[in-house]
Design a protein around this nucleic acid. Sequence first.
RNA 1: GGGCCUGUAGCUUAGUCAGGUAGAGCGCCGGGCUUUUAACCCGGUGGCCGGGGGUUCGAAUCCCCUCAGGCCCGCCA
Length: 524
Amino acid sequence: MHWADYTAQRLIERGGEQVSASGITPSGEFHIGHLREILSAEMIHRACLDAGIQSKYIFIVDSMDPLRRVYEFLSPEYKRYIGHPLAFIPAPGPDGKPGDGKQTYAEHFLAPFLKALSEIGVLPEVVMNHETYESGRFAEYIDLAISKREEIRGIVQDISGRELADDWFPYNPMGSDGSLDGVTVTGYENPFVLWVDSHGIEGKSDIRKAEGKMPWRIDWAARWAIHGITCEPAGKDHGAAGGSYDTGIPICRVLGGDPPDKIVYEWIQLKGMGPMSSSTGLTVGPMEALSLVPPEILRYVIARSKINRHIEFDTGSALFRTADEYERLVSSPAQEESGMTKRQLVAAQTQSGAIRMSQVESGSDPRESIGGVSFRHLSMLAQIKSSDEDVWSSLNRSGHIQGEPGKSLVVRLARMRTWIEGPHFPEDAKIEIKMALSDESRDNLDDESKQFLSALSTLLSECEWSDEGINESIANACESSGIPRRKGYSSIYWALIGRSHGPKASSLLFEMDRGGVLSLLRNA
RNA sequence: GGGCCUGUAGCUUAGUCAGGUAGAGCGCCGGGCUUUUAACCCGGUGGCCGGGGGUUCGAAUCCCCUCAGGCCCGCCA
């Protein structure tokens, strides 16, 4: 069974309406690692719906979290906003300087991420956490946490092993300058928390408004209670023993809530680069990933892996393998047959679950996502056909499509071209036409091959220079020189691109300069 | 120091919770395809399940030890 379906089964036992949730701090550019946070929860949500139970999916944006430091992409002017909630500071402009404030910092980074999410079929109910504070929904939990302060302190200290300061308080008020840092609580008179800030200014925060926030471990537990969250997969950082998941569960109960079961997902790493890190610049943005990869393949990368396993996100040749695997499973779906062993049955169920979870539109026919053309075939056409029109006519001739290409196929080709032209496209997938015969090629061409190529060059100098004409010439040259077709094609590839295999030879030749082809063949 | 995850064929991995003769895909090798040759079809090769010990009639699976890789233990989410 697929992990999302398995989790859904457990949630059904729990009963009631299910609420899956994700939470991310919009402190900077979102990256591919955040997609796992989102998709882990969203796929469980979908599995619940598929199982016929009530479920919703919410994305809580930690907009009340303060700016922690001046990141690389920010100008030094942001120093004065350190400690201020991300919802209350201006978005950076292209120069990294604070903008005019029309858009907040949180919105600035959130907007493109939400757009990317919609492209992969994720349409969450978005909750800006600062708005939940503003609405007063946190108030009763803040009050409760303050009155049970010692009990909560005990939980955090016992489970996390961390010593909390004597003046620890489960609510951080915002000071006179709007910063959450350096504000000392001096008293509590419901609904006001009294404080003195780092400038020595005294004031009070209304817990019914966004005038302060609870520390992370308490905030998380409270929001489970507020939103009735039953499922929130968290990154393994939260999942560590004594981490915020372990303290959140009992704290949530203290606050009168029914916490979700602990679910921990592993991280996505970039191939050969270790974990995603904004400080080292080793990130692949979701938008960048989507500019290369078809959305269902991106979903499949997450869906195919068990939730507790690392994923190495590889934008190189592994993408071909992943796409091949996806297409193979779509075209010949895993069948459950009698006589299968238990293991084979489980594997078949898991695979079909992964394909189901990979669809951009839940419940749609996976075959439509491929659009009739394989990822590999498209990569070849995109390289040898400079204009899109030529790609479409080639696909029509080959019978892959009939008439105009579908909308998804047009987008697919655009993504493919971006990938091919960008830095991630694997070298060994590039088609490079040789100017002269390499030594390696020479070694792979025996007399029979050379004879064939010579015969071919003669036929090619006379035939009609079209896909069909070239193809016919190749067939005839094989025939006349008595060479097996496989070897004939292989000879052509050695002569033209220095490899034993390649894309459809006639299409390749047709795109090339006729004189160049003839000279390469004759010199072989 | 404490804890979590991972280690199965050249590569990616399933199977570990509920112990019963190691499965898959890719790659590779061979064959086929009278014209879609990075395609498709058929067949084959390939694993002392990281290592050691224990429990058991029987261990990839449970227990202990060990090696290797990744990660977490900051009012940082």
